[in-house]
Simulated scan of single mutants.
Amino acid sequence: MTDSTLTVGFVGLGMMGEPMTRNLAAARFDLRIYDMDPDRTRALADVLGVTGVTYAADLAACDAIVTMLPTSAIVRSVFVDDAGELRIPLRPGTVIVDMSSSDPNETVETGRMLAKSGVRLVDAPVSGGVARAIDGTLAIMMGSDDDEAAAIAERVVAPLSRSVYRTGGLGTGDAMKALNNCVAGAAFAATSEALIAGRKFGLDAQQMIDIFNDSTGQTFSSTHVFGPHVVDEQYASGFALPLITKDIRIAQSLQQAMDRDAPVCDAVTTAFEEALAGLGGVDHTEAYRYWSGESR
């Protein structure tokens, strides 16, 4: 696929952002990339043969700008100041495609701020991890109040995904992502709990995972995470413990805002918060070590 008719900016060249920019470059967009680390920007731009910019303001001429950043607060800070004024002189009609795991309420407010200057925000968080970012097969949850902006966003994200789900208005993609990660966190926590008990009883860890995967206990965690990153102790899934904990907290706040009793979400939130307090900014799979007592 090629699409040279759009000038696309990309902000955030981390574990997910770097392979995503590679796929956008392969799609022949007029691509301009930016990261707070100028050496990272320069090195990747040289490899991909695209434009690396030194300042976010250098993205002003882009038709669309993709963000892949840690939080919605950071996304907002790239584009608007505390008074809600643009930090980058973006043209009216510019589309910002926030693919970060953002707080839906903050996304809606940022959208309001940007709309004052005619800039359109689409939330399009992803699921699938680093492996699917590399393959260009991410699942994307897209929220937008503007059909034209969403259509432009879909053109931009097409090389990154195998499926784009239009979830509704602005912020609904972020809500869906948080709830999805809460479910994923619950599965990881439950599988960890079972594995810890089974090992203490004398069961073989890998055989337990094999049986889960051939039985009703199968989940994404059991098929893609536990073998290499827990049983083989690689602990390198590429998804950091602070990030999944942040997403689960967002899901909990959504449950509370809906006035819902959510004991499973509450328990998962507590489990990950305790692991985060004990371990800090490690890969999320190391939470298993904390829960099992190995890292205390």
Results as ranks from 00 to 15, higher is better:
residue 39 D to R: 15
residue 39 D to Y: 15
residue 41 T to G: 14
residue 41 T to W: 12
residue 41 T to R: 13
residue 41 T to V: 14
residue 41 T to I: 12
residue 42 R to Q: 11
residue 42 R to G: 05
residue 42 R to L: 12
residue 42 R to C: 13
residue 42 R to E: 14
residue 43 A to C: 14
residue 43 A to V: 11
residue 44 L to W: 08
residue 44 L to V: 08
residue 44 L to I: 08
residue 44 L to C: 10
residue 44 L to G: 05
residue 44 L to E: 04
residue 45 A to E: 02
residue 45 A to N: 03
residue 46 D to G: 12
residue 47 V to W: 06
residue 47 V to C: 05
residue 47 V to N: 08
residue 47 V to F: 04
residue 48 L to I: 10
residue 48 L to C: 11
residue 48 L to G: 13
residue 48 L to V: 06
residue 49 G to K: 10
residue 49 G to W: 09
residue 50 V to Y: 11
residue 50 V to Q: 11
residue 51 T to N: 07
residue 51 T to K: 09
residue 51 T to W: 02
residue 52 G to I: 00
residue 52 G to R: 00
residue 52 G to A: 03
residue 54 T to Q: 07
residue 54 T to R: 09
residue 55 Y to C: 14
residue 55 Y to V: 13
residue 56 A to K: 10
residue 56 A to I: 10
residue 56 A to S: 08
residue 56 A to Y: 09
residue 56 A to N: 08
residue 57 A to F: 06
residue 57 A to C: 10
residue 58 D to I: 00
residue 59 L to H: 02
residue 59 L to G: 00
residue 59 L to S: 01
residue 60 A to F: 05
residue 60 A to W: 03
residue 61 A to M: 07
residue 61 A to I: 07
residue 62 C to P: 03
residue 62 C to E: 05
residue 63 D to M: 05
residue 64 A to Q: 04
residue 64 A to T: 03
residue 64 A to W: 04
residue 64 A to H: 00
residue 65 I to M: 04
residue 65 I to W: 01
residue 65 I to A: 01
residue 66 V to H: 01
residue 66 V to Q: 02
residue 66 V to R: 02
residue 66 V to I: 09
residue 67 T to I: 11
residue 67 T to G: 12
residue 67 T to R: 09
residue 67 T to V: 12
residue 67 T to L: 14
residue 68 M to K: 02
residue 68 M to T: 05
residue 68 M to L: 12
residue 68 M to A: 04
residue 69 L to E: 07
residue 69 L to I: 13
residue 69 L to M: 14
residue 70 P to Y: 02
residue 70 P to Q: 12
residue 70 P to K: 03
residue 71 T to Q: 09
residue 71 T to S: 11
residue 71 T to N: 07
residue 71 T to L: 06
residue 71 T to I: 06
residue 72 S to N: 06
residue 73 A to W: 10
residue 73 A to D: 14
residue 73 A to V: 14
residue 74 I to A: 08
residue 74 I to L: 13
residue 74 I to R: 08
residue 75 V to G: 07
residue 75 V to S: 08
residue 76 R to F: 01
residue 76 R to D: 00
residue 76 R to W: 05
residue 77 S to A: 14
residue 78 V to C: 04
residue 78 V to S: 01
residue 79 F to P: 00
residue 79 F to L: 02
residue 80 V to G: 06
residue 80 V to D: 08
residue 80 V to M: 08
residue 81 D to P: 09
residue 82 D to C: 05
residue 82 D to T: 08
residue 82 D to H: 12
residue 83 A to Y: 06
